[in-house]
Write a protein that binds this DNA or RNA. Structure first.
Length: 269
DNA sequence: ATGGTTGAGCGTCAA
């Protein structure tokens, strides 16, 4: 027995500020599961009543003061997985993993917020860039070491646009953090440990595909200088289960919106 | 090469 469920991922850039927009995402796109990044809310201030109010009785969250933070809202029952490593030993709330109780059996779901990496693409000059590369390397080793990984979905703001057409200008962004060769090679190696790119499953690599447009651009739609920083990956056993993709570009025009837009993938699980 | 904008929460830091 399977059922097609919709999993959304969204860098919300403050959960408390955008609770209304999250409700709008819930009612307009009706995801069964919503994975959030940059919730920017410490656990003691998490709005505990919000998930159920929006129709998500099951949820998990991991936040800290000021920065980072991840959360998962779900219509399906879930169990939080406590095993994954503390990436780079920082305890900085960039990863949450759960097991979803889907009709066809358990689904392992990982919600990641990879470090942005600062401005200068040089390990020596910029420790944030080194942290980003180390985070990706650690994640690669972790998933490479997982035996028998099946029925697993990995989503999140991975802060890297790996393909030429994941950015508005491949040439102009080769030295810009998010699209440097060290980052794109690192992300490709991570994905190659286990995963299939569920977004590019639906959109050919030759077509432009973006999920983020900078706040620093007056008219984001006219300039259209976007990047695909948000991702959905699945293990190969779920490849035949992929049913659809929605990149909700309209959300970039929502009043006081995030600079990232929600991405949904429909999977028969 | 630079500046442009946003959020958390009060200093600037992070993105």
């Amino acid at each position: 027995m399977t059922q097609t469920i919709r999993i959304a991922t969204w860098n919300i850039n403050s959960l408390r500020l955008r609770l209304g927009l999250l409700g709008r995402l819930a009612s307009e796109l009706e995801p069964d599961v919503i994975c959030l990044q940059e919730t920017k809310v410490p656990d003691e201030l998490f709005p505990l009543e919000a998930p159920a109010t929006m129709g998500y009785p099951h949820f998990a969250y991991r936040g800290m003061k000021g920065y980072n933070g991840v959360a998962i809202f779900s219509k399906l029952p879930l169990v939080r997985l406590e095993d994954p490593p503390d990436w780079c030993g920082k305890g900085d709330c960039r990863h949450l993993a759960v097991r979803l109780e889907a009709p066809g059996g358990g689904i392992e779901l990982h919600d990641f917020y990879v470090p942005a990496g600062g401005d200068v693409p040089d390990r020596e000059a910029n420790v944030k860039y080194g942290h980003k590369l180390d985070f990706v390397s650690e994640a690669t080793l972790y998933f490479a070491g997982r035996d028998e990984l099946k029925r697993t979905v990995l989503v999140g703001d991975l802060n890297i646009a790996p393909l030429e057409h994941d950015v508005w200008s491949h040439k102009q962004l080769l030295d810009v953090v998010s699209h440097t060769p060290a980052e794109t090679e690192g992300l490709t190696a991570w994905m190659a440990t286990r995963f299939h790119d569920a977004m590019r499953h639906f959109v050919p690599a030759e077509e432009k595909l973006y999920t983020w447009w900078s706040y620093r651009n007056k008219d984001w739609k006219v300039a259209n200088r976007g990047r695909r920083l948000d991702h959905v990956w699945v293990t190969p056993d779920l490849k035949p289960a992929l049913k659809g993709l929605v990149v909700h570009q309209e959300a970039r025009d929502w009043e006081k919106g995030s600079d990232h837009v929600p991405v949904c993938v429909d999977i028969a699980v």
